[in-house]
């Protein structure tokens, strides 16, 4: 089967000389939860931002290698980067609602894509909130400020905001950082339901979380991809000594 996303020999160096990624290659299949874990500053977030070209916003960085999405190069000349970001959507580590109502957060992406039909927008709002398990909590106050939500609700709103664009891939950069255990488990449960319809690439909050949600996982260290394996294999019988040390808590 053709990979949903294929990453081939990529290198990424920031303008200040920091080599964030070195010779990374792996594939992500459709409808799997792929978890990228590893210690802080190992390059996970940099990699995620490359996948929907949010990295374009970082000036003067040096990128080499190839990333394909549904088989075509995402840096190709004919690619519409804005459409790419609608197909591959990002949820950030810190809950970041845009100032405005809950509804306006959800309709923003579709509206910027040119969707004006109020009926379609309303449907997107309801579906995305239902998928993010937030509908019941906010359906009566869709027009109140998104800033007034709790931390866990905000993060699920951000997830819903990504879903409202009906993407194919969702990138999650440590989406439960700063959430309490209860909110965390609600988000994790939501992710399990989402994998049927979406491909998910996630940077987890902890090794434990990685083990809970992953179908497959990759371990990153100092800008290199050390090991990629099925979750069971990775977390029970890691092949690489460094992976094992990290998982068992000997460093990091």
């Amino acid at each position: 089967m053709e990979a949903k996303i294929s990453i081939q020999n990529i290198y990424y160096t920031y303008a200040d000389g920091n080599e964030a990624l070195r010779n990374i290659s792996f594939d992500v299949q459709a409808n799997e939860v792929f978890v990228l874990f590893g210690p802080a500053r190992s390059g996970k977030t940099t990699l995620l931002r490359l996948l929907n070209r949010l990295s374009d916003l970082t000036e003067d960085a040096d990128f080499r290698g190839v990333i394909t999405f549904n088989g075509s190069d995402i840096f190709g000349r004919a690619v519409d980067v804005y459409n790419l970001r609608r197909r591959i959507s990002m949820v950030f580590a810190i809950p970041t609602p845009l100032p405005g109502s809950i509804r306006s957060n959800l309709t923003y992406g579709p509206q910027m894509a040119g969707i004006r039909d109020k009926h379609v927008l309303d449907q997107r709002v309801q579906h995305s909130l239902q998928q993010a398990a937030l509908w019941d909590e906010v359906k009566d106050r869709l027009d109140s400020s998104a800033m007034a939500l709790s931390g866990g609700q905000k993060q699920r709103l951000c997830l819903a905001r990504s879903l409202a664009m009906e993407p194919e891939v969702i990138l999650l950069d440590n989406p439960t950082s700063g959430l309490d255990p209860l909110s965390t488990s609600v988000v994790e449960e939501t992710l399990r339901d989402l994998r049927e319809r979406y491909t998910i690439i996630m940077v987890p909050h902890s090794v434990q979380q990685a083990a809970r949600v992953a179908d497959r996982a990759g371990f990153m260290l100092d800008g290199e991809l050390i090991e990629v394996a099925q979750a069971e294999q990775m977390f029970l019988h890691p092949q690489n000594k460094r992976t094992e040390d990290y998982i068992t808590g000997r460093f990091g």
């Binding site: 949010l54 804005y82 459409n83 970001r85 950030f92 845009l98 992406g109 894509a113 990504s162 664009m165």
Partner: peptide, 25 residues
């Protein structure tokens, strides 16, 4: 800055971002 990043991550163009997420604020 995060308003800009979020807006562009949702597929908004640079001008759409400025028009809808920067200028109003």
């Amino acid at each position: 800055q995060q308003f800009r990043t979020v807006s562009q991550s949702l597929g908004a163009t640079k001008w759409q971002t400025i028009r809808h997420q920067v200028l109003p604020h």
